[in-house]
Amino acid sequence: MTETGLLLDVADLVVRFRGRRGKQVTALSGVDLTIREGETVGLVGESGSGKSTLGNAVLGLAPVASGTITFAGEDISHARNRQRRRLSRDLQAVFQNPYGSLNPTRTIGSTLAEPMHEQGRFGRAEIQRRIREVLDQVGMPADSAQRYPSEFSGGQRQRIAIARALVLSPRLIICDEPVSALDLSIQAQVLNLLGDLKRELGVSLLFISHDLAVVRYIADSIVVLKHGEIVERGPAAQVYDNPQAEYTQRLLAAAPAPVTHVPFESR
C-alpha cells in the first residue's frame, strides 16, 4: 500500500486495437486515473469514448500498448492467468447485460461458487456459507442458489452478478454500465444496493456509465472521457452542477433532466 490508501493507479494508459485492414485504432490515448481505498469514481462518456475499454484494460481484457496500471502497489498492466486469478480476490467486475452475465446452464450457486473454487483454498461448507451470505447482502433469498438464471428477472440477475463480484470480498469492483439495461425503477434499486455495499463494505467502485445523472448519484468523483482522452475530472457535485468542458455540458444537456428516460447504449 502506498500514499493515502491509493488502490488503483492508471498512468498514461494507451490501448490500441487492430482495426480493419491492419489499421490501428487508438481507444485510449494517455489516460490517467486514480481510485483510493473506499472511493467511487464515475467514468462517463458517449459510446466509443473508450470508457469500457478502460475498465477492460484494468481487468486484463484489453491490450495495454503503453502506460501502467498499478493495483495496490502491484503492476498489473500485463497480468496473465496466474496473476489474474490471485488478483481476482481483490478486483471484480459487474457487466451491463444481465442476461448474458450469468451462464444459463449453471445454477446460481454454482456460478457464485466458481470464483471461490478457482482460488482453491475454500472448503465446501465455507463456500456454501459465503454464498448464503452474499445472496443475503444483495437482497436475494437463500434458495436462489439452487435455481437457474432463466428464473430471474433482469434486476435480480444483476443482483446475482453483484453477489458474484462480492464473493471474494474484493477491494475494487469495476461496474461497466451495471444498470443501463434495466428498467428505471429497477435501476434505482440496484443503484441503492451498490451505494449500500460501498458504505457497508468500504469497497471501491469504478462506475462506468453513459448517464451522468446515474453517476452523479453514486460517485464521489467523476472523470469524463471523450475519444479516448480525459476532458474533465473533479468531485461529482462539481462536475455535475458546474461542468467546465463543453463536452460535459453537451452530455448533460443531452440527458433530459431530471432522469426520466435512460436510453439504451447501442454497441
Binding site: 486484463g60 486469478r85 467486475a93 457487466f95 450469468l102 451462464n103
Partner: peptide, 10 residues
C-alpha cells in the same frame, strides 16, 4: 459477459 467475467478472474 459471463465469459468476460471468467477471463477477468483469470
Amino acid at each position: 459477459d459471463f465469459i468476460r467475467n471468467l477471463r477477468a478472474n483469470g
